[in-house]
Design a protein around this nucleic acid. Structure first.
Length: 104
DNA sequence: CCACTGACTAGAG
DNA sequence: TCTCTAGCCAGTG
């Protein structure tokens, strides 16, 4: 079952420690820069072992709905610093997409 | 098969 | 600079 969601999960699974990626960035890696919404919807499925906390909005703010504080807590635990605005410093922590491994 | 929803993004007021 | 609106695709009912 290699659906769009599966691709989303694989990409997110490749996000390295102490790094974050925006929905649009993930969508771009999948080849569809406009599908940021669909990516977020895939995150809502939230499969086991998926580092959904490493996925943030384009401006660096969190987007996990009611799990926002949980996401911030996990990211803080991973070593990601937050600005007083409650946003991630994208200039420092945004994933560049290098460690991608399109296996199988 | 048709319609609605959704953890977004970018542009305009 | 902040807030609001429109558009996008895939999945579920």
């Amino acid at each position: 079952m290699y659906s769009f969601f599966e691709s989303v999960y694989q990409v997110i699974a490749q996000i390295p420690y102490a790094k974050v990626a925006s929905y649009g960035q993930i969508a771009c890696l999948l080849g569809n820069p406009q599908q940021a919404r669909t990516v977020g919807w895939a995150l809502k499925k939230c499969p086991d072992g998926l580092p959904w906390h490493r996925v943030v909005k384009a401006d660096g703010s969190l987007a996990a709905g009611e799990y926002v504080e949980l996401q911030q807590a996990i990211l803080c635990s991973e070593g990601v610093f937050f600005t007083p605005d409650g946003k991630v410093d994208m200039e420092v922590f945004q994933w560049d997409g290098s460690p991608l491994f399109f296996d199988s």
